[in-house]
């Protein structure tokens, strides 16, 4: 199972990005092979339509879950219809902490 986590940087110690569409990086974590991949978000500075474009980025990697701090109105329905689970984490956590939670 693959999980996408929004990150503010390109290391495991970066904090979870509280935005989805304009986050800095996506961390694609594979719970079976325990591998992580950092994908820079091409829509980081987009004026509009960042959300749907970012959904495309993560959906093309066949993720089942997305962890972020917030999901915008435009994409909730989109992500829902793609049968991807949204997980909203409001507390400040690093990407490493979230990955560890998946491993437990």
């Amino acid at each position: 199972m693959k999980v996408a986590i929004t990150s503010t940087g390109d290391s495991l110690d970066s904090l979870l990005d509280e935005r989805f569409g304009r986050c800095s990086h996506f961390v694609i974590y594979d719970t079976e092979s325990k591998s992580t991949e950092f994908v820079p978000n091409p829509n980081k500075d987009a004026e509009n339509g960042a959300g749907p474009a970012s959904v495309q980025v993560v959906a093309s990697r066949n993720v089942n879950k997305i962890v972020s701090g917030e999901f915008g109105m435009k994409i909730k329905s989109l992500v829902d219809s793609l049968k991807i689970q949204m997980i909203v984490v409001k507390e400040k956590k690093t990407v490493r902490e979230i990955i560890e939670m998946f491993n437990n």
Binding site: M73, S77, I84, Q85, M86, I87, V88, E91
Partner: peptide, 19 residues
């Protein structure tokens, strides 16, 4: 807009939906 049910977790204080 289509929205599925949302849940919250008492232990780790996160929110998630059920697609």
């Amino acid at each position: 807009y289509f929205d599925s049910d949302w849940y919250s977790c008492k232990t780790c204080h996160c929110y998630f939906n059920n697609p």
